[in-house]
Structures are given as C-alpha cells and as structure tokens.
Simulated assay, not measured.
Amino acid sequence: MSRQDGGTPAAPEPHDGAAAAGAAPGTRRGRPRSEGVERAVFDAVVLLLGEGLPLAELSIERIARTAGVGKATIYRRWAGKEELFVDLLRSLEAPDPVLSGASVRDDLVVLLESLRERGVAKRTSGLLHNVFAQMQLYPKLWNVYHLTVIEPRRRLGLDTVRRGMERGEIRADLDVEFVNDLLTGPLLLRTVLRPGASLEPGLAERVVDTVLEGLRPRG
C-alpha cells in the first residue's frame, strides 16, 4: 500500500481501465465534471506528453501528481487512462459538424471540410501527431477512440448519403458504404497515406462536386 504525503495511507489505485469494468466506452460516472479539475488534468497530460513521456508510462498516479489532484478525483471522472485520453483528444479537436439538412451537397461539404481541418490540425500540432502515432500501438485505446469518436462521424456521412439517395440526388442502386468511401477517400488518402499532399481550402467542395457528378441518377 502506498502512502500520500504526510504518511496517511492511500487507497489502492485501481488498475487502469478496470474501474467500472463492463461500462460502455465513453460513459460518464461519478459526480458531475468540474471544468477546473478537468482542465488541470488535461494540462497535466499535455505537459507530460510534451516532455516526451510515452503513453505506456503515463500512469494515473503521475497525472494526478502533476495536476495537483488526488487519484480518486480522476477516477470519479474517468474509468481509466483510455477514457481520459479519448476525452483529451476530443477537447483538442473541433466539435463534430452540425448539418443543416437542407442540402445533401452542402452537408457533404461540411463533413469533408471537417475532415480536412482535422487533417491540417494533426499536421500542425506536434502533440496531436505524437498522440495519434502512439495511440495506434495500443489496440484497446485505439478501439475506444474509434468507437466513440470516429464511428459517430462515419455514421453522419452514411446518413447523409442515404438522404441523398432518398431525395434522388445520388443513385440508389449503389452501396451506401461504397459511396461514403468515394467521398472521404481522397481526404483520408492525403491525410494518412500522403502526409505531404495538399489539404488546401476548397478541397472539400471540389471532391464533393466531382464525386456527385458521377453519382447522379441516370435518365
């Protein structure tokens, strides 16, 4: 058993990710969030990562010590490191785009522009680049991020494509997933496989208009 400063016995630290076992990824637990505490914890993680500490060595105990809070304070807000890291990444990214629903073409442009901006941010932010590079080495952490961040955004795209098919703006004989891949593929290619490729303003409109030209219903 460890002791806090002053010799008072501290409660055993739960194993990372073990607290609230069985809870769905991204679920909230404990008391309502304090913005001040949350900011202090996020700042501590950013500081430690900025100093070159690998994710594998970033323990809840070290985060709490750097943030000036108790471990119990962190565990009341996050089940473990995975949930904490995903929330940190959410705070560093722009919020999910809001779609008007008035125009399928315009909604697709909004979605792809959001994807383009995230790609630019990952190129220009050393912290984001570092975290994403390390995250992919930890399947559990990457899976939580995929389920709680990437998948909801992908569903937005799929729903928009379906709406385009229902309105007769996109051929209805095509697979929805395939059409969504055609739209997002150029942005992901330039972000992931060709990191030096241009992500210039106006790219989202150009991709959407070019792809939709080939997807219009025949006749």
Results as ranks from 00 to 15, higher is better:
24 A>R: 04
107 D>E: 08
97 P>L: 08
74 I>F: 13
33 R>K: 11
141 L>W: 01
21 A>Q: 01
66 T>D: 00
33 R>E: 14
136 Q>F: 15
105 R>T: 07
26 G>P: 04
69 V>L: 04
26 G>T: 14
80 G>C: 04
31 R>H: 15
92 L>R: 12
142 W>Y: 10
38 E>H: 10
67 A>P: 07
131 V>P: 00
73 T>E: 01
58 L>N: 11
76 R>Y: 03
76 R>W: 11
128 L>H: 02
107 D>Q: 13
104 V>P: 02
134 Q>Y: 09
95 P>R: 14
46 V>D: 10
147 L>C: 11
102 A>H: 15
117 E>Y: 10
26 G>W: 04
95 P>Q: 09
15 H>A: 12
68 G>E: 10
74 I>A: 11
129 H>T: 08
112 L>Y: 13
32 P>E: 12
21 A>D: 04
122 K>F: 07
66 T>S: 07
86 V>P: 00
21 A>T: 00
114 S>W: 11
85 F>Y: 07
145 Y>Q: 07
130 N>D: 10
94 A>G: 13
25 P>K: 00
46 V>N: 01
108 L>G: 03
127 L>H: 02
72 A>R: 13
75 Y>C: 02
47 L>E: 15
59 S>A: 02
46 V>H: 03
91 S>F: 10
111 L>W: 11
118 R>H: 14
29 R>S: 03
31 R>Q: 15
149 V>M: 02
19 A>H: 12
61 E>Q: 06
93 E>L: 05
69 V>N: 03
49 L>F: 08
119 G>M: 05
21 A>W: 05
11 A>N: 09
132 F>A: 04
103 S>C: 08
146 H>Q: 11
101 G>E: 09
108 L>E: 03
104 V>D: 04
144 V>M: 08
56 A>I: 07
81 K>V: 00
88 L>C: 04
61 E>F: 06
90 R>E: 02
24 A>Y: 06
109 V>M: 02
145 Y>F: 04
133 A>T: 13
133 A>I: 08
103 S>F: 00
127 L>P: 05
143 N>T: 12
119 G>P: 02
25 P>V: 02
72 A>E: 15
29 R>Q: 15
39 R>C: 03
14 P>G: 06
107 D>M: 11
108 L>F: 05
108 L>M: 05
117 E>W: 08
50 G>V: 04
27 T>C: 10
92 L>K: 06
112 L>A: 10
62 R>I: 08
119 G>Q: 14
134 Q>M: 07
23 A>N: 06
61 E>N: 13
96 D>Y: 06
